[in-house]
Design a protein around this nucleic acid. Structure first.
Lengths: 222, 222
DNA sequence: ACTATACGAAACGTATCGTTTCGTTTCGTA
DNA sequence: TACGAAACGAAACGATACGTTTCGTATAGT
């Protein structure tokens, strides 16, 4: 649309057709076989109309698939473990759908080469998810299940990371109850490590006599 | 080389030049900017000589970078946590090197579309790593640190998954001591969940002290 | 009606893929 | 020492995809 509202308005038909067709195409051929030429042809749309809205293939995939991954139940079950289990199980269901399974690996690869896209991902997915995690943890602290609130990005990685490994790598993991089992271990670990994972307190070997901290890896986050 | 040994033998100079140049190029331009044309030109080698050895770009990256990720210290520290910490810290160091950081995301994406390559990855990386994990766990059981040996692929995901999330996604995780903290939580979780993670015993809410057992949770895998 | 913009279709130039063809070089074998 | 098979570097191939641009046409506001 023009800045002052003149000219022909963009057709919402194009937006809908492109996003719907993108999901279909991604589910069928995966990220590798997904091309803008095919997308436009199949959606009955010109490539110009596509690039007028999204600046790259990765942006289209973001709009069609990834931007919806933030959703999750905000329920308060009264238990840290159940709260996390519902949230992670919902997330696992979303990323296990055929569209997401075939679209995410390539999209994640593009993330590492496109800082702007990574920032959009952080705003649209990471932040809402970590905000809900923070709320869950705060309730657990208020309830007395935890003494201190653990580092939220770390918890996020502990929960979502195993799911990613399960989806992306041939590890031989069983899908049955995967999210529940991850939550069970992590929650149990959090409780017995209570306080050691709070932000800016990386390691305090109080009750594990033989553990050396060891050097950390070098820094990613290009 | 020909089947009966006749003809000009392949030059090891080509193998070395290609693999070394591939690592250089990947570290500089990443998986996205990595092309066989550039690789061959820079290595002073014809493309035919490259494709005579490796059948695709992904195979080259596998040979140049990924196939070396299995290494790890086989030491026995006498403690489950220290054993795992050394192994995961070494792995974190390997995948944090610039070459691996820039090569792995795209390679992982290719894995999901190439079952043969995924099988090669499983043989070359997953199996040796899980074999070492199994050995570590068996020692912990023999030592009395654990009662039952947990599911090895699950433990593998619990350890490596967070590392992948840290490397691939904008989660805001801190690199300092990341591997150590992951191990601390997971080992603590394993110990307090002892027996619940053994293979084919997904969930047995017998001795969960403060957490409500909760329902087993619905299953993803759409 | 006038103007500005979106529309589908099509072609553009650049880049990469994996393959193939050149003429040449290097080895094992006869 | 001569022969033949296969590797070598260089170069070109057809196919595909990217993101851009140009067409003539359609559709809104003013």
């Amino acid at each position: 649309m023009s800045p002052d509202g003149r000219g022909r308005p963009r057709s919402s038909r194009v937006d809908e057709a492109v996003l719907r067709t993108a999901r279909e195409l991604l589910a069928e051929v995966g990220y590798g076989g997904f091309s803008v030429d095919r997308l436009a042809a199949r959606a009955g749309v010109g490539k110009a109309a596509v690039y007028r809205r999204w600046s790259s293939r990765a942006e289209i995939v973001f709009a069609a698939v990834v931007s919806g991954l933030h959703a999750g139940p905000p329920e308060d079950t009264g238990s840290l473990r159940d709260d996390l289990e519902r949230q992670l199980t919902a997330f696992a269901g979303a990323v296990s759908e055929p569209v997401a399974r075939r679209a995410l690996p390539g999209f994640i690869a593009d993330l590492t080469d496109d800082p702007a896209l990574a920032a959009r991902f952080a705003s649209a997915v990471t932040e809402p998810v970590q905000a809900r995690l923070a709320a869950v943890l705060d309730r657990a602290v208020a309830r007395g299940e935890l003494r201190a609130r653990p580092d939220v990005p770390m918890l996020h990685s502990l929960l979502v990371g195993p799911l990613m490994a399960h989806l992306l790598l041939p590890f031989g993991t069983e899908a049955e109850g995967f999210a529940s089992r991850v939550v069970a271990v992590v929650v149990a670990g959090l409780k017995s490590q209570d306080g050691a994972l709070s932000p800016s307190v990386p390691e305090t070997p109080t009750s594990c006599p033989s553990a050396r901290p060891g050097r950390g890896g070098s820094e990613p986050r290009a």
